[in-house]
């Protein structure tokens, strides 16, 4: 029996992690493999987001490789823990979610175990003995179809590209795995954490509405307008790389190829030209609205609705109209909490 292993270097299972499990499960069904989810965490207790872990009916089993040395993230220890798990379980395919930590571990692990690696995977299927992978290349201008015939194979799946696994996780036997940690191998050490707050307190990944700004905003002040609009819509604020590079907003607001991948119901792109590297980050959005002075901007090719115009006039008009209609109903400002915010 073949094995697909999902490696989750985390104590918290969120949608991104469930998507990695979903991707593994879809592959395993076609490929008659079993799915093992392995968490790498400082302790097996208090894992957030586990549901019905002991349910026997699930076809997904859960293992937890815990060691107190893993409290502070260090790539050396996490790569070594991953390697130990793989030596034990001998999976054909290893799936990681595209978190920054996972994206750091995956290539090092792949090199160490002599595995092929594919990152940014958006589709996965079995074809006989082989695994067929689709990933965007050239900033999303093209898609590449890759065929893996040699295993093990390490994959990083792109967020918001696969349906999350919503089922139960069954405990493996033994579900708590012993791993060794060698502190002397550690060459890097976390000194400080700098949290960057999401605008309007809503996280981009969970937001149902995102108002996003680009170079066309011309400066940080423009983002104050977007924040006000986002509050009225109960949404979050994002940005293009150009706006982040200009220092107008924190880099953690960046959406796109090398920023957050988001899947809101509504995405409002303001002063964003629509470069493919930006668009690949919003392919999961249900409805895209473009506000741009240039009717020829590529963003209008991917938008559902658009206004050709200067955001400095359009956004205040939208806010005024929301205020007016809202005054008619409850009079108060709408709340801004997303359904599943954190």
């Amino acid at each position: 029996m073949r094995t697909v292993m999902v490696l989750l270097p985390t104590s918290r299972i969120e949608r991104t992690e469930r998507e990695a499990i979903g991707a593994a499960r879809a592959l395993s069904r076609e490929w008659s493999a079993n799915v093992q989810v392995a968490l790498i965490a400082p302790t097996a207790e208090g894992i957030e987001g586990l549901r019905g872990r002991t349910e026997a009916s699930s076809d997904v089993s859960l293992w937890i490789a815990a060691h107190p040395q893993l409290e502070a993230y260090s790539p050396e220890l996490y790569v070594s823990a991953s390697e130990q798990l793989i030596t034990r379980a001998r999976p054909e395919v290893i799936v990681f979610p595209s978190r920054t930590i996972a994206l750091e571990i995956a290539p090092r692990l792949a090199y160490r175990i002599g595995a092929a690696l594919a990152t940014d995977v958006i589709e996965l299927r079995a074809e006989g003995e082989a695994v067929v992978i689709t990933k965007p290349v050239y900033g999303g201008k093209a898609h590449a179809v890759l065929v893996a015939q040699r295993f093990p194979l390490v994959l990083c799946v792109r967020p918001r590209a696969f349906d999350p696994f919503e089922g139960e996780l069954r405990a493996g036997t033994p579900h708590d795995l012993q791993i060794a940690c060698d502190p002397s191998s550690v060459r890097t050490q976390l000194v400080q954490r700098i949290q960057e707050d999401a605008a309007a307190g809503v996280s981009l990944e969970e937001a149902r509405v995102i108002v996003s700004g680009g170079r066309g905003l011309g400066g940080p002040e423009g983002f104050r307008l977007l924040e006000e609009l986002a509050r009225w819509l109960g949404g979050a604020v994002g940005a293009s790389r150009a706006a982040c590079d200009a220092g107008w907003v924190p880099a953690s607001w960046q959406i796109g190829q090398t920023g957050k991948k988001v899947a809101p119901d509504l995405y409002i792109a303001v002063g964003i030209s629509g470069a493919s590297q930006h668009i690949v980050g919003i392919s999961g959005a249900k409805c895209i609205v473009a506000i741009n002075t240039d009717p020829k901007a590529p963003i209008f090719k991917v938008a559902d609705l658009g206004i050709v115009g200067d955001y400095r006039a359009v956004i205040p008009a939208l806010i005024a109209e929301l205020k007016r209609t809202h005054a008619g109903s409850s009079g108060d400002r709408p709340g801004s909490s997303p359904e599943e915010g954190r």
Partner: peptide, 16 residues
């Protein structure tokens, strides 16, 4: 992994 093919994804959106 071997590259089988590349293609340009189609988009058929019409912006209102």
């Amino acid at each position: 992994v071997a590259v089988r093919e590349l293609f340009i994804p189609s988009s058929s959106k019409v912006c209102e």
